[in-house]
Design a protein around this nucleic acid. Structure first.
Length: 587
RNA sequence: GUCCCUGUAGCGCAAUGGAUAGCGUACCGGCCUCCGAAGCCGUAGGUGAGGGUUCGAGUCCCUCCAGGGACACCA
């Protein structure tokens, strides 16, 4: 927001250093961290330490001396109201009126585009939510879906052209088991309304039957053989039942507001993966141990000339010649760069337990000479577990179905909105309940670091109070309410001509940070940065409207505050949109 | 055994190597004649242990301790 002024100041600091025989400084700007202090800050400790040239010296004292010298030289630049040298820091306080106008104008001019960075002309792919067909879709699968969706939003807002890819597991032993069970006990049946639940039930039923009757294994192997020879009837059944799952997934994604540009399926890469394995053997990268009953492996540490065991041994084809996920992942990675040769990054949003697997995949591709291999990266996240550190498993049935969670959350939100706002139309209540319910599900998955485990429990999942999406949505609603009472007209751009109060300063400050924070969040692949900002914005707005009258204020104050309310509402709505959460009009 | 992640208030989580470590929740006490109480205000509570680097360490390095995970044909 003050890039031009900041640059001018940097030049003056350079000039100061040159004339005081100090080294060329590398400046890092940050926000003044004290609440109510408003502006940019930089420190001179590094410069002071460097100025001693290895000799001992009092760094803090020297830093303060430089800060004072710089402060004296630059005076108070235009756009700022105060310049101070404090404890080795140079603090530049913004001119409140000017800064307010700049921030508020930017938000109200750009509206939904506020915060978005310039297009970079760079394409990236984000692969996320790799659900298995013929299995339940449960809360454990939710994190990849939500995280990947939001990372895509963030990268897009940061200026990248994002391709959202899904990679369902539509073939494997789990599918064969399901087909066996269906042919034997359910032939001709069709799923009802709860597709994924029905599919999941049949899968756990199949698992149970096989556990209790190991003699059925032979029948399952028989089905696998029919698949390998592509028996037309079985392929047709697979296609039909696979589609049921995919329809169920689409329904879930629609309810969550998650979309994809591109679908890859692991069944597509069985053959091309095997061809790549052959190539790797020919290149001498992979060792084929099938003659002695072993699989095809890549001894990564050995091939890399390492004595450590960092990369271990990577198994890329079963001893019976059938494809593993590893086989298919090699081909998938290549396919992505065939489809999109200019990808500058290819991200895989997959849980942390597969970290080794992906380093092996990428390293193997690098060894094979694919120059794009270094552009692939795994974005690990910790799993969602149940209380007592119980991992959700569809086989053991220790799961919370996603559709149950969505239904319960929306139901709970509907109950609350009926209590709070009985006069709204039933249609509005339903819409609000959806926005609140979905927001309440997403926010907790995004507001902790990717590497932290999320423990799911019903009570906190359905708790709408405190630091949560409904709090932020509520702040938007209150802002909207004020604007509605003002006739929805926002005054034209103006420079505030009164002394801004503390809550206004804090609020404007936070609104102004959104563009930077979007870049930070995208750079570090951390939605947490935005969930925190959105919450801080909502809190600051709450603070503002409880302390600063808008509609009853004198006209000049009222006009300025109405613009601020509109800007705050927009900034909060934009932040929520990045998080895949909608801000209702009322709630 | 090797490697990775995590350890911050009773509990759940924050804090680009920077100044005074923040928020929620639970507990206790206040606030609906005042733009909507899904809200606001107040009290209380602290970096697993020990070294090191640095002007400055919750953050980086080393050694421990505790919890979780991954390590040859599961996905």
């Amino acid at each position: 927001m003050f890039e031009v002024e900041q640059k001018g100041i940097e030049e003056k600091i350079s000039a100061y250093c040159a004339s005081h025989s100090l080294p060329e400084p590398t400046l890092r700007w940050s926000w003044i961290p004290f609440s109510g202090q408003w502006g940019l800050s930089t420190s001179f400790f590094q410069l002071a330490a460097a100025s001693f040239g290895g000799q001992k010296g009092n760094t803090p004292l020297k830093a303060q001396e430089i800060a004072e010298g710089v402060a004296e030289l630059i005076g108070v630049p235009s756009g700022f109201s105060k310049v101070e040298a404090v404890k080795g820091y140079l603090n530049l306080t913004f001119d409140p009126a000017l800064y307010t106008q700049r921030v508020v104008d930017a938000v109200l001019d750009e509206e939904k585009g506020y915060g978005r960075g310039a297009r970079r002309g760079e394409q990236v792919m984000v692969e996320f939510s790799q659900p298995n067909t013929h299995k339940a879709f449960h809360v454990g699968h939710l994190r990849s879906a939500i995280l990947g969706d939001v990372l895509s939003n963030l990268l897009d807002a940061a200026g990248y052209d994002v391709i959202r890819a899904n990679y369902p597991g539509d073939m494997g032993l789990h599918v064969i088991k399901w087909l066996w069970n269906y042919e034997k006990y359910h032939l001709g049946e069709k799923p009802g309304a709860d597709i994924t639940q029905w599919m999941g039930n049949l899968y756990s039923e199949a698992s149970k039957r096989l556990e209790q009757n190991p003699e059925f294994e032979a029948e399952v192997r028989e089905v696998y053989k029919r698949w390998d020879s592509r028996e037309p009837a079985l392929v047709a059944l697979w296609k039909e039942t696979r589609q049921w799952s995919l329809d169920g997934f689409t329904d879930m994604y629609n309810r969550l507001g998650i979309r994809f540009d591109r679908y890859y399926f692991n069944s597509m890469f069985e053959d091309s993966g095997k061809v790549m394995v052959d190539d790797l053997i020919r290149q001498g990268i992979a060792d084929d141990e099938r003659a002695s009953g072993g699989p095809v492996i890549v001894k990564l540490d050995e091939k890399l000339g390492l004595k450590t065991e960092n990369y271990r041994v990577f198994v890329i084809l079963r001893s019976d010649g059938t494809a593993l996920y590893a086989t298919e992942d090699l081909a998938l990675a290549r396919q992505k760069f065939t489809d999109y040769p200019n990808l500058s990054r290819s991200y895989y949003v997959v849980d942390v337990r597969q970290s080794l697997h992906f380093t092996q995949v990428f390293k193997t591709l690098e060894l094979a000479g694919y120059d794009w291999a270094v552009r692939c990266s795994h974005v690990p996240y910790e799993i969602v577990s149940l209380p007592g550190n119980v991992v959700m498993s569809s086989r053991e049935g220790s799961i919370v179905l996603l559709e149950d969670l969505i239904r319960e959350a929306i139901q709970r939100a509907l109950q609350v909105v009926r209590e709070k706002n009985p006069e709204l139309s039933e249609e509005s209540k339903q819409e609000i309940a959806r926005a609140v319910g979905i927001g309440a599900i997403k926010y907790p998955m995004l507001t902790r670091d990717n590497t932290k485990v999320v423990t799911f429990d019903w009570q906190s999942a359905l708790d709408f109070n405190g630091q949560a999406a409904p709090y932020i949505q509520y702040a938007c609603v209150r802002a909207n309410s004020i604007l509605r009472k003002a006739g929805m007209t926002v005054p034209a751009s103006l420079v505030p001509d009164y002394a801004l109060s503390q809550p206004e300063v804090v609020l404007i400050d936070l609104i102004g940070r959104l563009p930077n924070e979007i870049q930070n969040a995208a750079r570090d692949l951390r939605p947490l940065v935005i969930t925190t900002l959105a919450y801080d914005l909502a809190k600051a707005f709450n603070d503002f409207y409880t302390q600063c009258p808008v509609l009853q204020a004198e006209e000049n104050v009222r006009n300025s505050r109405l613009r601020l309310v509109a800007a705050a509402r927009q900034a909060m709505a934009n932040s929520l949109a990045l998080l895949g959460i909608t801000a209702p009009q009322a709630m």
